[in-house]
Measured scan of single mutants.
Amino acid sequence: EFILQPIHNLLMGDTKEQRILNHVLQHAEPGNAQSVLEAIDTYCEQKEWAMNVGDKKGKIVDAVIQEHQPSVLLELGAYCGYSAVRMARLLSPGARLITIEINPDCAAITQRMVDFAGV
């Protein structure tokens, strides 16, 4: 995967993360976080594997957030924003999600994903 990915990106003209974002923009409903998550899950199941938590493990994350109702949540590494959208949609009003992503391209994609999801 890591050796072939740059070749695939070159042939496709963009990165996997950008392709995931484009899929979301084309297939998800703006302002609907659940729709965004479903679009990412569908893309990763049908098109390309991606390094995200996914729906199965995501339900565990959901349960922890719902049980503890944090007022501040810190995410280290956002990748394409799946977990940020997943967690933010469950936060109480006034709660904050702080996401740190070292890769500026992934940070920009995450910001667009979060904005599109409306969270």
Rank of each mutant, 00 (worst) to 15 (best):
E1Q: 14
E1G: 13
E1A: 13
E1K: 14
E1V: 11
E1D: 15
F2I: 12
F2V: 15
F2Y: 12
F2S: 11
F2C: 15
F2L: 10
I3T: 11
I3V: 09
I3L: 09
I3N: 04
I3S: 10
I3M: 11
I3F: 15
L4P: 14
L4V: 10
L4M: 09
L4R: 11
L4Q: 05
Q5P: 15
Q5K: 05
Q5H: 13
Q5L: 13
Q5R: 12
Q5E: 11
P6T: 06
P6L: 04
P6S: 07
P6R: 08
P6A: 07
P6H: 03
I7S: 14
I7N: 10
I7T: 14
I7L: 12
I7M: 11
I7F: 09
H8P: 15
H8Q: 14
H8N: 09
H8R: 07
H8D: 10
H8Y: 11
H8L: 13
N9K: 05
N9T: 12
N9Y: 10
N9S: 14
N9I: 15
N9H: 13
L10V: 15
L10Q: 02
L10M: 09
L10P: 15
L10R: 10
L11V: 09
L11P: 12
L11H: 10
L11R: 09
L11F: 15
L11I: 08
M12T: 10
M12I: 06
M12V: 13
M12K: 02
M12R: 15
M12L: 03
G13A: 07
G13V: 07
G13R: 11
G13S: 15
G13D: 07
G13C: 04
D14G: 15
D14H: 09
D14A: 13
D14E: 10
D14Y: 06
D14N: 09
D14V: 07
T15P: 05
T15A: 14
T15N: 04
T15S: 07
T15I: 03
K16N: 06
K16E: 10
K16M: 07
K16R: 12
K16T: 11
E17G: 05
E17Q: 08
E17A: 13
E17D: 06
E17K: 08
E17V: 10
Q18L: 13
Q18H: 11
Q18K: 08
Q18P: 01
Q18R: 13
Q18E: 08
R19C: 15
R19G: 09
R19H: 04
R19S: 03
R19L: 00
R19P: 04
I20F: 10
I20N: 01
I20M: 05
I20T: 08
I20L: 06
I20S: 02
L21M: 03
L21R: 13
L21P: 02
L21V: 11
L21Q: 00
N22Y: 13
N22D: 14
N22K: 12
N22T: 06
N22S: 14
N22I: 05
H23P: 01
H23Q: 05
H23Y: 04
H23L: 00
H23R: 07
H23D: 08
H23N: 11
V24A: 04
V24G: 01
V24L: 00
V24M: 01
V24E: 00
L25V: 08
L25Q: 00
L25R: 11
L25M: 10
L25P: 01
Q26H: 05
Q26K: 03
Q26P: 00
Q26L: 06
Q26E: 05
H27L: 02
H27Q: 02
H27P: 00
H27N: 00
H27D: 02
H27Y: 03
H27R: 06
A28G: 06
A28P: 01
A28V: 00
A28T: 03
A28E: 00
A28S: 03
E29K: 09
E29Q: 09
E29V: 08
E29D: 11
E29G: 07
E29A: 12
P30S: 12
P30T: 01
P30L: 14
P30H: 05
P30R: 15
P30A: 04
G31E: 04
G31R: 02
G31V: 01
G31W: 02
G31A: 02
N32H: 07
N32T: 04
N32D: 04
N32K: 05
N32I: 06
N32S: 11
N32Y: 07
A33S: 02
A33V: 10
A33E: 04
A33P: 08
A33T: 09
A33G: 12
Q34H: 08
Q34R: 11
Q34K: 08
Q34P: 10
Q34L: 01
Q34E: 15
S35I: 03
S35T: 01
S35C: 07
S35N: 11
S35R: 09
S35G: 10
L97V: 08
L97R: 02
L97P: 01
L97Q: 01
L97M: 02
I98V: 09
I98L: 06
I98F: 10
I98T: 01
I98N: 02
I98M: 08
T99S: 14
T99N: 08
T99I: 12
T99A: 15
T99P: 03
I100L: 11
I100N: 00
I100S: 10
I100F: 09
I100M: 06
I100T: 11
I100V: 09
E101D: 09
E101K: 13
E101Q: 12
E101G: 08
E101A: 07
E101V: 06
I102N: 10
I102M: 14
I102T: 13
I102L: 14
I102V: 14
I102S: 14
I102F: 11
N103D: 15
N103I: 14
N103Y: 12
N103S: 12
N103K: 12
N103H: 11
N103T: 07
P104S: 15
P104A: 12
P104R: 15
P104L: 12
P104T: 07
P104H: 13
D105V: 07
D105Y: 05
D105N: 14
D105E: 09
D105H: 13
D105A: 06
D105G: 13
C106W: 07
C106R: 14
C106G: 13
C106F: 03
C106Y: 03
C106S: 13
A107T: 08
A107D: 02
A107S: 05
A107V: 07
A107G: 13
A107P: 00
A108D: 03
A108P: 04
A108T: 01
A108G: 04
A108S: 15
A108V: 05
I109M: 00
I109V: 07
I109T: 06
I109S: 08
I109N: 00
I109L: 01
I109F: 04
T110P: 02
T110N: 02
T110I: 06
T110S: 10
Q111L: 06
Q111H: 07
Q111P: 01
Q111E: 05
Q111K: 04
Q111R: 06
R112P: 02
R112W: 03
R112Q: 05
R112L: 03
R112G: 03
M113I: 02
M113R: 00
M113K: 01
M113V: 05
M113L: 01
M113T: 12
V114A: 06
V114E: 00
V114M: 03
V114G: 01
V114L: 05
D115E: 15
D115V: 13
D115Y: 08
D115G: 14
D115N: 14
D115H: 12
D115A: 04
F116C: 09
F116V: 04
F116L: 04
F116I: 08
F116Y: 12
F116S: 03
A117D: 00
A117S: 02
A117P: 01
A117T: 00
A117G: 09
A117V: 00
G118S: 03
G118V: 00
G118A: 06
G118C: 03
G118R: 05
G118D: 02
V119A: 03
V119L: 05
V119M: 04
V119G: 01
V119E: 05
